[in-house]
Design a protein around this nucleic acid. Structure first.
Length: 152
DNA sequence: GCCAACGTTGGC
DNA sequence: GCCAACGTTGGC
């Protein structure tokens, strides 16, 4: 089992939104970056856990935990011009973008902010903290995972 | 709202 | 294949 971090802007889709979905499950659509796409398509496996990270908001940081319940499959929101992330270069026959389904596990008792994460030398190697990082899907090591959860 | 950092596009 | 221009991300 592996660990991941998934970024989302809470104004668009928050951990509470996920919790409110039917079966507390939703597809993780809209990723339009090849490196992140590759991880969604090939890396995330059923049963893997991921931090739900709130980005581009008042308090950027880790807000909760989700579980991968369906492995990578074509992101159908790329096929439909009505969706924000429509991509005419992606078709059902030759899909370019992928997504997974995630299920809400829990909300952390408090948001572990980016500022706090930066203060821990043990976490300095996280890609999340790398200069200029913009990946919306990234791996988390078991050590980092357990350490972060111990901060709550 | 600003802006640094990065990815993508497209002319050449 | 280079690289300038542009668009996006996302912290601050």
């Amino acid at each position: 089992m592996r660990y991941w971090l998934l970024k989302s802007e809470p104004a668009t889709f928050s951990i509470d939104d996920l919790k409110g979905r039917s079966d507390r499950t939703e597809h993780w659509d809209g990723v339009r970056n090849y490196q992140a796409r590759n991880m969604l398509r090939d890396g995330l496996k059923k049963g893997d856990l991921a931090f739900f990270y709130h980005s581009n908001c008042d308090q950027p940081g880790i807000a909760g935990v989700v579980e991968v319940v369906r492995e990578g499959y074509p992101d159908f929101t790329a096929f439909d011009p009505d969706y924000d992330h429509f991509d005419p270069k992606s078709t059902p026959d030759t899909p370019r973008w992928y997504m997974v389904d995630v299920r809400f596990k829990r909300t952390l008792k408090r948001v572990i902010t980016l500022a706090e994460l930066k203060q821990h030398p043990l976490l300095h190697e996280m890609p999340l903290l790398a200069r200029g990082n913009r990946l919306s899907v990234m791996p988390v090591t078991k050590v980092q995972w357990n350490y972060i959860l111990s901060l709550v």
